[in-house]
């Protein structure tokens, strides 16, 4: 049984440069603190968000991030949607493998972030762009 979470608050931020990363992380933190998320979950959320925003800058030339406070049943959490209009990912299964990279990095971003979050979905179309949606529950 899955119920769709209710969105309580919505905030968007455009990320186009590397210097936007730190302010973006602070913004996510603010929202996480607002709902009373534990320090450990905050750290996981912000680290994962940082990985995804870097991916977006590196491979998608930046994009828009939606930061939402969502509520499902008794639990509340933060949902982040990263949307870019980059080249897209031809093989998502491969991109989700530990250690796979087309760049110079270690290839931990996507699989590592999936481990840090409670929910993780990725949609990508070659030539159109990539959308990654993640949710971290307050008590997840």
């Amino acid at each position: 049984m899955t119920t769709t979470p209710i969105v309580l608050n919505r905030d968007t931020m455009t990320v186009t440069r590397e210097t936007d990363v730190v302010p973006f992380r602070s913004r996510v933190k603010e929202h996480a603190v607002k709902i009373g998320m534990s320090l450990l979950n905050q750290t996981k959320l912000i680290t994962g968000a940082s990985e995804l925003v870097r991916n977006m800058l590196k491979y998608g030339n930046g994009g828009i991030v939606k930061i939402e406070i969502v509520s499902k049943g008794r639990d509340s959490g933060i949902r982040l949607t990263f949307e870019d209009k980059g080249p897209g990912i031809p093989n998502i299964d491969k991109a989700m493998q530990d250690g796979f990279t087309t760049g110079r990095s270690m290839g931990l971003g996507l699989p590592g972030t999936k481990r840090l979050m409670n929910e993780f979905t990725i949609k990508s179309e070659v030539g159109v762009g990539t959308t990654v949606t993640v949710t971290k529950w307050k008590n997840g």
Binding site: L39, L40, Q42, T43, K44, T47, D98, L108, G112, R115
Partner: peptide
């Protein structure tokens, strides 16, 4: 501690 836990889960 929270950073250490996160690093390991991230796989670093």
């Amino acid at each position: 501690p929270a950073v250490a836990i996160t690093l390991v889960e991230l796989g670093l």
